[in-house]
């Protein structure tokens, strides 16, 4: 009998008639999409780590990423520009949470305001990345081209630039699609689509995607600029 009681409390969510995960279908699917995307990024970063571990030398990120926009040529400012990029993404993640929360409160003005800030943050991050890529390209770095020597002064392979451009490029593509999704959400909010539906669940799903982009940057930033 004790078995039956535990089973009934366990089965509360599985009796049918309601979502056993207590979330909407689209949100569950967004979570599983993000999980598969996490494996893609994980595979990229682990292959980067494996290649780095199998090599004797590696370029010093503090010597490679030391420039800053509008600063004189040859300025030595390691980590400064990338920390600004990191904070831009964290702040845009915060405004996204605020937009999701405003949506739950059915506060259209709050959603619009915070979505606009999130989109601005996303565009600012993409602009920073575009500047950095352009700068590195002018220094002679690209897929298949690596002008930087290893930290110990020995010759480096092109693995460093190949992984850097592939992984930050793939992340930048995610930021770009996140900005596009957020713009669509903003337009739908302004057209009162969600007011008509009676809920702002789409904002929550876009929010999950946007936070995932921030989450991936935490790993990419650490693996390429700090370690």
């Amino acid at each position: 009998m004790s078995n039956v009681t535990t089973a009934s409390s366990e089965a509360k969510w599985w009796n049918g008639g309601k979502s056993p995960f207590d979330v909407e279908y689209g949100k569950v699917m967004m979570w599983y999409f993000l999980m598969s995307d996490a494996f893609t990024f994980g595979a990229f970063l682990i292959s980067y780590g494996t290649v780095r571990f199998s090599t004797n030398g590696w370029p010093d990120p503090n010597k490679v990423f030391k420039s800053f926009p509008f600063a004189p040529e040859g300025v030595n400012a390691p980590l400064v520009f990338v920390s600004i990029m990191t904070f831009i993404l964290i702040v845009s993640s915060v405004t996204m949470v605020l937009a999701v929360h405003a949506g739950k409160m059915m506060d259209k003005k709050g959603v619009v305001r915070n979505m606009i800030w999130t989109i601005i943050g996303g565009i600012a991050f993409l602009s920073c990345q575009a500047w950095e890529w352009n700068h590195l390209h002018h220094e002679g770095a690209w897929w298949g081209l690596n002008p930087f020597n290893n930290a110990d002064g020995t010759a480096s392979s092109t693995n460093f630039t190949n992984f850097f451009f592939t992984i930050t490029g793939f992340h930048g593509f995610h930021v770009f699609s996140g900005v596009v999704i957020n713009i669509i959400m903003l337009i739908m909010t302004l057209m009162d689509k969600f007011e008509q539906r009676g809920h702002y669940l789409m904002i929550e799903k876009a929010g999950l995607y946007w936070h995932f982009v921030d989450l991936v940057w935490v790993f990419v930033f650490t693996c390429f600029y700090l370690l």
Binding site: F21, V28, I46, S47, G49, T50, R52, S54
Partner: peptide, 28 residues
């Protein structure tokens, strides 16, 4: 969220522990 949902997301990601350990050891 509900514990079941958390588990379906977090448990598969635990594979990363093995991925990282195995691949980095292989590279080394």
């Amino acid at each position: 969220e509900i514990k079941n949902l958390i588990m379906t997301i977090v448990v598969p990601l635990a594979l990363f522990i093995w991925f990282i350990a195995a691949f980095l050891a292989d590279g080394n």
